[in-house]
Design a protein around this nucleic acid. Sequence first.
DNA 1: TCAGCTCACACTTTTGAATAGC
DNA 2: AGCTATTCAAAAGTGTGAGCTG
Length: 786
Amino acid sequence: MLSMEMYPSLTMGPQRIGDCFYRDRQAPAHMPLFPTACDMAAKALPPRVLAPPPVPNEPATKTPKDEVRMELENASLWKQFSSVGTEMIITKKGRRMFPGLRLKLSGLNPSLRYILLLDIIPADNSRYRFQGGGWQAVGGAEARLPDRVFIHPDSPATGSHWQGRTISFHYAKLTNNTLDTQGHIILHSLHRYQPRLHVIEARDMLRWGGGQHSFVFPETQFITVTAYQNNKITELKINSNPFAKGFREDGMNSKKQRDARQKRKIPDLTETLDIVNCDPCDSTELLPQPITTTTTSTDLQALALASMPPLPDPSCGFRPEEASYQDTLVPQHALDLGHAFIASQMSDISISMAGGMQERVGGEVANSMIERSDTTAYTSNFTDAQANSCFPSAPLPPSSSSFSSLPTPDSSDISDPQPSIPPIDYPTILSSSPTLSSSSSSTTPLLQQTSFTFPTPPPSNSSSPQPLLSSSSPSANTYHTIPEAISPHTPTDASFPALDSTFQSGLQDQISADSLLTQPGQPMQGEPVASGNDAPSDQSSAAFIYPNNFHANPNPAPITTQPLPNKNHPLASSLPYSLPTHGAPSSFAFPSFPPHMQNLSFANVPPSSAHPALHLQNLSHQSQAPFPPSSFAHPSSSIPHPPFQPSSCLAVSSSFQQSVTSAPSMTQTAHPQNLPNPRTSSCPSSYPPVEMGAIPQFNQASPYRPEMVLHHPSLLPPLDPSLPSSLPSSTPPPALYPAFPSYSLRLCQDPHSPLSIPFRHLYRQHQHGHAHPQGSYLDMSTRAVF
DNA sequence: TCAGCTCACACTTTTGAATAGC
DNA sequence: AGCTATTCAAAAGTGTGAGCTG
C-alpha cells in the first residue's frame, strides 16, 4: 500500500488516477492539486534534498547500472522442475507460480529507486501436448493474449532496498481467463512461456527513467496447464510446496489417506459402527511416515537430474524452518535514507517509503521462505539444467524436431507412465536463432542490456497535443525520451497543461516507462532497430527484439548495460504495435474504474487530441492497436532450434530500445493498418479497433486485488526466436497469434505493499470508496484508455 | 471417445483480529 | 493506557478427482 503512496502514478488506486484526471478535465483550474501536493512536499524539504536526481552518466562512463546483476535465488529448485519440464497450473481465478521467482539484485545504485516488473511472454509459437511422457509441439499457438506486467509490490524502492533482501514475485498469479479483471497475468494453457524480469530506474515519484535492465532465466521457462500432465512435476510440486504438504506421503491428504477416507465413507454409509479401522485420524495414520523422498530423488535422478542437487528430503520437500534461506539472504541493513533521498525531489516521500520498506522486509523474507533457498548467480552454470530440460523445441514439428530432447514417443515411453525423460534443451528462446549459437556457447547468462531509456528531461509542458514523436527529440544524454506514442499508455504532455512542470515530467516519465514495456511489437517486427535508426543501439543484438537478444549476444556479458540508442528513430515500420491514430475509442467508459472514474471519461477526448491528464490518447490508440502481432506471426517452426545454451540469466536488451527508437514514427503509424512494415501489414493479426464496450470484461466492475499489475497490450517483445528479425529471411508466417484486442493498462496495488500511509496527504480523495481490504489499484482496463 | 477444462473437496499455510498478560 | 505475545478463525493456496464440454 505504501508503494502506491509513493508512486501514485504507478500504484495508485483508481481513485487517485481518477482524481488526477478528473481534476484535469473537470477543473483545470484546480489541476495543481496533485502536483501541488507533490510540490509542497518537495518544497518542504531542505534544498539539498531537492537536488535533481543524478543524471545518467555519459555512455562512456560506467554507471552502476552497468553492473546490475540479478540472481535467481532458487535456481536449483527451478532447475529441478526444468529438468522434468516445468508445468504451471493456471486457473480462472488465478494461480500462483511455483516455484516462485526469488531473486537477488546487486549492482544497483543504493540511492536510486527502481521498479521491478515481471512479465511472461510466449517462448514460441507452438501449442503443446503431453505425449509419450514428454511435451510435444502439436500446432500453432493461439492468439496472443494481452500482455500484463506484474509490478513488484515494493516498487518503487531504492537500490539498497532491493539489494538488501530476497525479491519474491510469489504474489503474481497466472490465469487462463482471457476476461480476467483481476489483473492476473493471462496465459494460454498448454503453451510455453518465459518469465522476464525488468529493473527500471525510477528517478522520482513520477518519473521512470534512467535505464532498464531485463533478465531472463531459462530455467524458469514453463508450460501452462490446467491440470498437471507429468507425474514427476506433481511429485516435485507436492514435495516442494508447503501448501501441498497434505498431499505428501505422510500428509492427511495423501492418496493413502484419501483412499482410507474413501473406504471409510463407504462403510459409514452402510456400517456406521465400523469406524475404528478407517479413521483417517487414526494415530497410526498420523505417525510420521518413512521418508518417501527417496522415491522422489530416485525418480529425479532417473530423469537425468544427476547434475542437479539432490532433492530435499521428500518427507518434507521443503521445510521452511530448515531452509537455508536466511543464510543466503543478504544481511538486512538500514537503508541509506539520507543518501537515497537526496536525489529525489520527493525526498519526504522517499523517506516514508524507506521506512515502509524496511518494515516490510520481514514479510518479504517470510514469503520467500516458502521456497527453498538455493541461490544461483546468474553467472552460475546452468548447463545441466538446460541439458536436462524437458521442453522440446516448440516450434518444430514433433517429428522433425531435432532439438527436442524428448524422444519420439516410443513403446518404452508409452509404457512407462513416467519414463525417464532425456534432457531437452531449451529450444526456442535462446537457441532458435542461428545467431544465438554464439551466445549459447557462453557459459554466462545472456543477460544484458538495458535498453530501457526513460526521458530524463521532463516532457514539455505544452498543453497542446504533442505529436507522438515530439518527445522523441534527441536528448543530449544517453537517455532517450520515450515518445508518447510508443506506449499506448504514454500520455502526451499536453494532457496536463496546468500541471507543474515537475509533475508533468514525472508523470510523463512514468508513462514513458510504461511505454517501454509496451513495445512488444517491435520484437515482432523482427527487424533490427538499426533499420533506419541512427541509434548506436543497433549494434548487433541491441537492435533486435527480445529473441534477438539471445541471438545477438554472442558473448553476453552478464548484466552489461548498453548505451541507449538514439531515440531519433523514425521507424514507423518497426512499430508493429504502433497505436492507431484514429479516435474511435474516444467514447469509452472505464468500466473497471469506480463510477466517478468512469465519469472522468477519457471518452470524449480524441485520441489524437490533447488528452486528459495522462494523455490517454495514446492509451486509446493502444487499446485499438493490434496486439503485437509480429512476434507471433512468425512461425518459429521454420527455424532450426539449436540446443539451448545454459545460462542462468539472459539479458534482454534491445527490445525496448527498438521500441524506443521506433517511437518517433508512431505518430504516423499509430494505426496498425498504417504501418509501412510489410510484415505488419501483411499480418492478419492486426487488431481492429475495439470499443471497450465490446469487451465484456471492461464493463465489469473491477475488483480490487492484491496484485499490482500493470497491464496492457504489447508490453514487451516476445521471446519467440522465430521472429523475423532474428530470422535471416522469411516470409511472414501465418499469424499464429491473431490479433487480440488489447487490454487496458492496469495497475493494482499490492496489499502487501509496504508503502502506504505516508503519502496519503498527496491524495485528497484517498478514502473515497475505492479502498479495498486488499488494497487499491489502478485499473485502466477500459480500452478508451488506450 | 477423449483431451482438456471446471469445480468442489480436503488439507495446509498465511493472515489478521481478538484476547490475555505484563 | 499501552505494548507484546498468544490464540483463534477466516482467507487463501495446494493437488485431486469427478464431472462437464467440445
